[in-house]
Design a protein around this nucleic acid. Structure first.
Lengths: 217, 217, 217, 217
DNA sequence: CTCTAAACGAGACGGTACGTCCAGTCTTCGG
DNA sequence: CCGAAGACTGGACGTACCGTCTCGTTTAGAG
């Protein structure tokens, strides 16, 4: 009977955080059900069994709501930085994580968001930069590469190339794409720039391939 | 009263190609005036002084209309392939042309189009690939690089990196971005992969810089 | 199959007058179903199986729509001027018609209309004035009253009193109210003002009563 | 500064009668500011610097609140019954008071109230009846009329006609309307019905005119 | 050179969603 | 316990476009 019991039949009126969570989950379901382009405020409100005003009180538009829903329903991109023992494995792991995330957050959504509200995505971008820096530093410590002091443009290269791929194609990213980015572009470049000291640059890359596949998926 | 009297307010009624051109120009103006997201079929029809049906008879939706308008109001991306005398200049010229185009076709439009209608953009992508192949072949003939037989992923690398940049930022692309892509990523990679034959790989790149700047803008 | 057959299963799209009639009938039904205060544009649109825009294209607001619906679904107040043979019968007939109309157009509606949109009702008012003038003229010709040249305030008196009654009470108007207005107010006043010539003014009124009752309803 | 706590921003929290008075005054101001149709509970609550619940605890709806506000902010219609010395003056005075009141309580409000909540207005109606009865009794005592025993319909006639006028027109009631009601309708009728004993019915009315004008306004 | 069929211009139509406003109810906290 | 404050459910508002359909009017081009 007491108000704090909460298990009332009539389902007490929801408020604050509880209500907000319901809405964000409803938005997430709606996103999965109809996609971003056909997601409407009315649809989300209906699914969350509330009024549109409640949505507009919290988020100014569809884009903000969807971003909040994504943040709420997905763990952070980088929970922990991968450490597979060698540079190639680490980079593949990072890209693999991005690609997997891509399965949920379809390009549909990204383009829709960018179209509706600019000034939003760079978030992911800068995060990736930090992760890559760490990965490269470790590789330098292991002696795989001479120096981790690479141009920012090189550091962000793998993530940017992958993201570009994700933005321009609808289908899911194959593992082959990831290995191509790493083996044909990133590693050669890193070794050419920072790894020239040793000289035994390319050879070590090929034998690793088999071990790392499980890491990606 | 009679049609040839000519005292009518508007010109004769337009048809076929003439009408189509008017519409595409109207769409282009509308795009410039309000941007893609606020462009409506009604707005274009009104500006072109015609009915909506006329639009729908030719293009199934906003996206198709806008693409047609872009094609109609912009020269082809590649009228002729640049030939500055060295690889670096050529690539910078190609990227420069993309970037300039970016000033007209704002990311606003690209994201909008991708959101509205997928399966469209690869066009630009494949074109760029052809251009780069030619540029590289010429470089190989000049002896700048050992072989033009590079991985497709490397060939498309500069264009993809630039496009990624254009997709994720609102502001216009600075020339510095172009030179970074070429000097920090593309040329080192090409020389590391295909230019190992000669050995005098990196040195030639730096002195070229000054000459080519005017080529870009 | 042919378009001009018209008897298509899909029930051709309605337009112009036909559509307008459907809407006005829907509004009339809605009015009967829920009353003026709970009548909504959405409800009418739904009942008429059309969109709200179609309503707003024709009528600026609820009040205008309802008035149009009333005009469309009710015969004109005065199709023909009653002619029962004596003044009392005529006036009772006129009031009776007003009262009957009152059963359909509830005070609910009138107050709602007045509240929503002023400057509308005088219509009925002026019409009544014309009818009463004719009725009085005939009475003068018959010799019932000395002159039909009465003050406008006297001419409109019965209708105004009745309307006042209708405006301030919810229940339907009883026949007794009508006879009171006529016998206790209007006829005495008319005879006092215009009928002093003859002198045998009041007596004739009472015997008439029985005959005219059926005239009222 | 303040009674107890002192440094609080507003004054002490209001309660009971004090709070109620504030609200009713706020409602009155709101009524003047935006009119009945645009008056909202939220608006009143905001103006009174309180919550909506406080309003709903006291009045079930807008209509009740507004009626309470009117009662609170206006003196009773009839503080004292006018006594000008003759019937005509008294009746004009009564009507004049009604008309003056009409300037404050616009028809806007009356129709709105009637639309929102029926069963309310008869109040004024019955009050007027009592006043008129007294006025007529005095006239009978003075010998102006033979008997005060008139039909209720005649007694309420002037007030009803005036109210009808007020209900159907937006503009303020002119003094001419009042004199017409009295001179062309009420007095002739009263003399025809109750004043026939003397015979010198109409003559006395005209000379009075001048004296009474000031009484009206 | 006329007749016909198609395209044009104009805009109405059925419909979805927008973003806002308010009604009435419920909840939380402070006094 | 009540006032203050404000969030909640819910419904309607009036607007903007969508994509389709219909109307009357040109205008080619076939006979």
């Amino acid at each position: 009977m007491s108000p704090q019991t909460g298990d009332r039949s009539g389902t007490q009126r929801r408020r604050g955080a509880e209500l907000e969570a319901s809405i964000l989950e409803a938005a997430w379901e709606e996103l999965a059900a109809v996609g971003y382009s056909r997601l409407t405020m009315e649809g989300v409100a209906a699914r969350a069994r509330t009024g549109k005003q409640v949505l507009y009180r919290r988020w100014r538009n569809r884009a903000e709501l969807v971003i909040a829903a994504m943040r709420h329903n997905t763990g952070s991109i980088i929970d922990q930085i991968p450490d597979t023992g060698d540079l190639r494995g680490d980079v593949l792991a990072v890209l693999g994580r991005m690609a997997r995330r891509h399965r949920d957050v379809a390009p549909d959504i990204i383009h829709g968001l960018m179209a509706d509200a600019p000034d939003l995505d760079p978030v992911t971008l800068t995060i990736m930069s930090g992760v890559m820096t760490t990965v490269l530093k470790r590789a330098a410590e292991r002696g795989e590469i001479a120096s981790a002091e690479l141009s920012p443009r090189v550091i962000t290269l793998p993530a940017n190339l992958l993201r570009h791929e994700m933005l321009l194609t609808r289908h899911p990213i194959s593992d082959q794409v990831l290995t191509e980015i790493v083996d044909e572009v990133f590693l050669p470049l890193v070794h050419a720039t920072a790894g020239s000291s040793t000289g035994e640059t390319l050879p070590p890359t090929s034998p690793h391939r088999a071990d790392i596949e499980p890491q990606i998926r």
